[in-house]
């Protein structure tokens, strides 16, 4: 039922990015994947999404997978609704409901290039969720958004996840984002999962939560950054 990876490896030339990596993603669990720049976070996500032909090892994904990328990647010559239904046989009603869920019901006739960054990213989420995935892959989808929009989208993602309950793998470089959203935080280092931390704090969470502050320091140390504010 879960997604299992074992012995997953990928090298670009001489550079080994994923080195015999083992990982299990449990159903309905919100997992955040942290790692330094170039640590292979996106490589791992692309392998799970089936976008990498050269990855080796076993990747066992049961059920459907959907992806929301860093840039929303809407098809610019299709109106919003057609973007949501692209490749689906589902009736338009379902796609409209998905757009309503992300607050874009009124924009279903809009051309993607007329959307704001936040709207486009919400549309991208709707396009992923309308496929009712069992595994939702999010590749730094909030990194290009302004701080205020990001807060709203964080809440939206949590709501959508609570309602549809897919397993989520969120690739991010933002420790706070991981702490606010995820049940489980992974740190990728040297091609393997170096840290695997569960977060049990109740949602909605606050940055100032003492438990989270401690975790933040642990994670920053794991990422090779010395936490600020400590003397």
């Amino acid at each position: 039922m879960a997604t299992r990876l074992s012995g997953v490896a990928r090298a670009f030339g001489d550079r080994v990015v994923l080195d015999s990596l083992d990982l299990e993603l449990r159903d309905g669990e919100f997992t955040a994947l942290l790692g330094r720049s170039g640590s292979g976070k996106s490589t791992l996500l692309r392998a799970l999404a089936g976008l990498d032909d050269e990855v080796t090892g076993t990747i066992d994904v049961t059920g459907s997978v959907a992806v929301a990328f860093q840039e929303p990647r809407l098809v610019p010559w299709k109106r919003l609704l057609a973007n949501i239904t692209l490749g689906l046989d589902a009736p338009a009603g379902k796609a409209k409901a998905a757009l309503a869920e992300v607050g874009l019901a009124e924009r279903s006739d809009a051309w993607p290039l007329t959307l704001s960054g936040g709207e486009a990213q919400r549309a991208s989420l709707a396009r992923a969720l309308v496929r009712e995935p069992e595994l939702l892959l999010l590749d730094e989808p909030f990194s290009a958004l302004d701080a205020l929009t990001r807060i709203t989208i964080h809440q939206l993602v949590l709501e959508l996840w609570a309602r549809h309950r897919p397993a989520v793998l969120l690739v991010t470089h933002d420790v706070d984002e991981a702490l606010l959203l995820a049940d489980r935080v992974l740190v990728l280092d040297e091609g393997r999962i170096a840290h695997d931390i569960s977060i049990t704090a109740e949602r909605p969470r606050h940055r100032e939560d003492p438990g989270l502050v401690t975790l933040r320091n642990t994670l920053l140390a794991a990422l090779g950054v010395s936490p600020e504010g400590r003397s």
Binding site: L51, V67, F69, E71, R73, V75, L86, G87, L88, R127
Partner: peptide
């Protein structure tokens, strides 16, 4: 190429890829 990747993740067939992504993109 990023849209072609989207097509892969949306499980578009080769025919659908050509019809919805490649041809309108070349227009």
């Amino acid at each position: 190429g990023k849209l072609a990747e989207v097509a892969t993740t949306l499980k578009l067939s080769r025919g659908q890829l050509i019809r919805h992504i490649v041809l309108p993109g070349a227009l």
